[in-house]
Design a protein around this nucleic acid. Structure first.
Lengths: 216, 216, 216, 216
DNA sequence: CATGAATGAGACTTCATTCAT
DNA sequence: CATGAATGAAGTCTCATTCAT
């Protein structure tokens, strides 16, 4: 995106800039009100553009939200890729991913909340596009994580479940943790939350008792 | 509810019956369209009542949905209580709970999807009541599970994390699993899903290697 | 009405009784909410009848209100007639009428407020009948008072304006006084209000010169 | 309003213009149907705007009516102030006020009818704001007239009743006269109506004794 | 392009009236 | 007759989208 800027005319560059401003405003409003609750009036006000102007950048409310989803997920996905590129050991890789995801989800928790709500809620036709987009981006992210888990499985570090599934499970656990108000303890720092999630995701809730025979 | 039927007049009993019919229709529509996407027109059509009739049973769209949430969650909660009452061993208890939850969430997955979406999405005033209701019922359920986990923690079966938190984590994992399209394998039976979730929730994704020293 | 009771069957007598009960309830509700604001639901609840029952006594909401108007105005008119029958002297007659009207209007001020509002407000078709009724009853009352004023005019006690007009003016002044919150002084007793209105209606607001002896 | 026009942008000026158009249409519809009987559909049709457009100028039906009340009453109040400013003699002042009020009330009689009906009728919550507005504006007008009457009382021209009360009485008499269909005679000109009302308000309906010289 | 006024379909809600029991 | 559940027309209000300037 930025990389392409050099090839753009000034006009085109400014257009991209305004597009980003609108997306930024949209994020604020959608985060605060949810997709259905948000109005383009408010987005326009926040972006300091006229309502009509939004329509020369995005086709519709749904399109705007979808674009936003793309952008935000691309950020996370990018970071996850970076982290995974810098850590080849599977278990440490998982830990790093959980930490990064948690960071992102927490910093944008209201937005992800709104986006994930649309992923799952069967809605009217207009919203179908967004669902598809959210799903696509979540799948993408899940697959990237899953790919690494697959490596770990092959190496004998992780149980032999479907790697994709394990990826989504990880995503789900982290998202759930950051989005729900119910957290471990009260004022826990983000890091300790991450540690705990890592611990449970990796070793479960049961206490290991090498001397105790597996029940049943 | 049923227990009270005897004390009701025929009129009152019929009223309760029709109320249930409306709730049933509402579940279908809300499940298919989500809260915002659903219209009372469609609920009325589905229930084969005039729109106005709905209003003699429920005060508003939000009220109708909230009532539905209460009813559905009460069903699950009831079953979970039963299951826990019949199983005092903590680990087996957790397994049973996961199985029951999965059953319920899967059989009503679209509805729980719609309900859970409202739990977290900050929205307009009208929806606030529903959010509160969903949160209340989810908390109730989470607490019941958490209470049993607390026992397990005390007995040294589970790690010493906040029991409430572990309860919600369990709830989140199961809900996430049943709600998302992405599952382990493809046509796996429901049972295998439950087994897998149990396995991971209890022992994590990492393979136990007693002979291998903990890394890092 | 009561006079006719003897000729009625028990059934018919009871019917009349229930009709009166409904009218009584209707008065309470219409007084509190105004014609448009009142609902038949509330009237039925107040009357302790089912809503449908109202329709076997009155054709419609408008019809019920019209009947109520008739009844209430007939009471005032009756009393005014009595008073006038007992007082042949014009000035004293006017005084007595003002006193009676004030009594009635104050005791039923909310109702007369609601009724008079309909007299003047052009509304949708449905209400037209009520307007006509209110107008008819007000006219009737105005004419009765006007007739006595006409006598006074003929006798040289009152100015030679249209007697009907003077009658309505009197009615208007009293109604206005009893219906508006704005009154002379604060906790004035009803009587002093009547005296004042009499004084002004008869002699105006202007002070008679001190060298001129007060007539009567 | 007009005075500020210069400072407004063209856009703002046009907006004000359209606002006035809507108010004009609203006056026509509310006058013909009364507040409750009027529908925004009809106002929109009359104003030749879409229904939704009304809502970018006024928050609600009640808000639109309240704005209308403010505007109309401000016109009368303005004129009354002017007239009083140009006439310091109390009795002549009263005469001038009656004439001006009559003029206004007659030219907009249907509207004032609708407005005054709301002043007194206890109704549902939504209307409360309008009631308050009407009351405020009527009180304002009554007080202005009352203030002048107070001067007259102090100077010994008027009887020593509460000046506020006398102001409202005057208002009531004139409004009543212009609003009711029942008037003095039939086709009497407006002026003679005013003269008559002046005569009666000042000196009442009773004939002054022949041996008593007419004052002034 | 930017603007924001205008649009109008569509949603929720109310309530007088009807009618089967 | 009494009942009150059911009806559905009608009203208010919202807001995504369009379009003339």
């Amino acid at each position: 995106m930025d990389a392409d800027s050099k090839k753009m005319s000034r006009r085109e560059r400014e257009r991209q800039l305004r597009r980003q401003e609108i997306l930024e405003a949209a994020r604020a409003v959608f985060s605060a009100r949810g997709y259905e609750g948000a109005t383009l009036d408010e987005v326009a006000r926040e972006a300091e553009f006229a309502k009509g102007t939004l329509y020369s950048y995005f086709d519709s409310k749904a399109d705007l939200f979808a674009a936003l989803v793309e952008r935000e997920f691309e950020h996370v996905t990018e970071r996850v890729k970076e982290v995974l590129a810098g850590e080849s050991e599977p278990v440490r890789g998982v830990r790093a991913v959980i930490r990064v995801l948690l960071e992102f989800f927490e910093s944008r928790s209201d937005f992800f909340r709104a986006a994930m709500a649309l992923r799952d809620t069967g809605q009217r036709e207009e919203v179908e596009r967004i669902r598809a987009t959210v799903k696509k981006k979540v799948d993408e992210l899940g697959d990237i994580i899953g790919a690494r888990l697959a490596d770990g499985i092959r190496d004998g570090h992780f149980k032999e479940y479907d790697a994709r599934f394990l990826g989504f499970l990880l995503l789900g656990i982290v998202h759930n943790y950051s989005v729900c108000a119910i957290k471990h303890g009260g004022d826990e720092s983000l890091v300790s939350g991450a540690d705990m999630l890592c611990d449970i995701y990796l070793d479960g809730v049961r206490i290991l008792r090498p001397d105790v025979p597996e029940e049943e």
